[in-house]
Simulated assay, not measured.
Amino acid sequence: MDSPYSHELQVAIRTVQSAAKISQAVLSSDDKGTVEKDDLSPVTIADFAIQALLTVTIHSVFPGDNFVGEESAADLRDNPLLLNRVWELLLRLQDDEVKSLCKLPRSPEEMCEMIDKCGFGEPGGPESGRVWVFDPIDGTKTFVRREAYAINVALLEGGKQVLSVVGCPTLPANTDGPIHNSTFDSTGLGSIVFAVKGHGTYVRPLVETSSEPVPRKLEPHAASASVADLRAVSCYHMLDSGVDDAHEAIMAKLGITTKGCDFLAWVLRWVTLGLGLANVTVWVYRKRERTGKIWDHAGAMLLFEEVGGKITDIDGKEIDLTAGRKLTENHGFVAAPRSIHDIVLKAVHDVLHEQGKANLLA
């Protein structure tokens, strides 16, 4: 791809490839070093190691940029055994091939510093400059079950998405779908889906083969569509934060009769929309105070927008990536083809009023 971000794209892709090796080493292990965070979500040794690798490598190339990531090193500092396991996981990458592609921390102390560089980072407002956003393992709950997960790397400029690189070790680069949590690429190659603002969305194998793969540019399938063309991706009966009966009623009102694609991880839902295996998703949180987290959405949303999709919250507001680590200026998500987004948004409002849940709207 010829774009102003060619160098950033090259660095991000090669780093995600090395990060995928870390994740796959842990994926096959029965003991993933899982601990529970304050919000009751799990984190594994792969999450910590990948965030360190992403930050050290990209910081070494772009030292003036800022960083935001999901994890902090607090659990590592409090647990020497866990710290040592993460450090040993990174040391496995110290072969000549990886050293030529990525930079590793020089010590466990630097590893923790780099993790915290993201873990305490804030995206900032329109004057914030360049900010990289990482989700080292999106879908940790399914990752622990040896199911689908993603490695999310995004670059923001002034709070706007300009680059997205998502590694999907379990998903094939060529599929007609539908795909879901238990989908597993039998070829073992996996996929990388990436986009640059104004230059489209592409897919290629994650693992290098004998010849350099030529990325395939995805058609702008969501630039124009009718309601009859709608195909959904969502997450039913796996998270207690969403209003499942409203989601199902909205799909029924839009005439969507099949479950379609189903993913726990938000990044993989955006990937599915970018690939054209679905073109609509809706998420209504049970409470107005519940919000998304920037690393689950930043960059990955660009994959859908670059094929003609439009994304707002359930109030119709643009997603504000400058609000902070949590998307406190937005409630939920409505993503649909640009040409019929207003119809989908109206269906959301109609169902919430019909179900007596209008309090969830602004």
Rank of each mutant, 00 (worst) to 15 (best):
H237R: 14
E208V: 12
L264Y: 03
V207Q: 01
A246K: 09
S224W: 01
L277Y: 10
I250P: 02
S211M: 08
G276D: 07
F263H: 04
L275C: 08
G276S: 06
L268H: 06
V214Y: 10
A232E: 05
H247W: 07
E248A: 11
S241C: 15
R269W: 05
A265I: 02
S211D: 13
H221Y: 10
L254V: 02
L277G: 10
G274A: 12
G255Y: 06
L230M: 07
P213A: 14
K259Y: 01
P213E: 02
H247M: 06
A232I: 08
L268P: 00
P213S: 05
E219I: 01
A265G: 05
A232D: 04
V214T: 12
V233L: 08
L275R: 12
V267E: 15
V227W: 02
K259A: 09
P215M: 11
L218V: 00
A232F: 03
A249C: 09
F263S: 00
P215N: 04
L268M: 12
A222G: 08
L268C: 06
K217M: 06
V243Y: 14
S224E: 13
L275F: 08
A222V: 02
D262R: 13
M238T: 12
L277F: 11
A232C: 11
L264K: 04
V267D: 07
C235G: 06
V267H: 03
A228C: 07
L275D: 02
A249D: 13
I250Q: 03
V233P: 04
A252M: 06
S211E: 15
L254E: 02
L277S: 04
L239P: 07
V271N: 03
S224F: 00
T209Q: 05
D262Q: 15
P213T: 10
V271E: 06
P215K: 12
L277H: 09
R269Q: 14
C261Y: 14
T257P: 03
V243T: 13
P220C: 01
E219V: 00
S234C: 13
A246C: 07
A225L: 14
I256L: 07
G276K: 00
G274E: 08
R216I: 13
R216M: 08
D244N: 15
A232V: 14
L254C: 11
K253E: 10
S226H: 13
E208Q: 02
V271I: 09
C261N: 15
L218E: 02
G274K: 08
S241Q: 06
M238P: 02
A252P: 03
E219P: 01
V233F: 05
A223I: 01
S241L: 12
G260A: 13
L218I: 01
P215T: 04
A252K: 14
F263K: 01
G274W: 14
M238D: 04
R231L: 08
G255W: 05
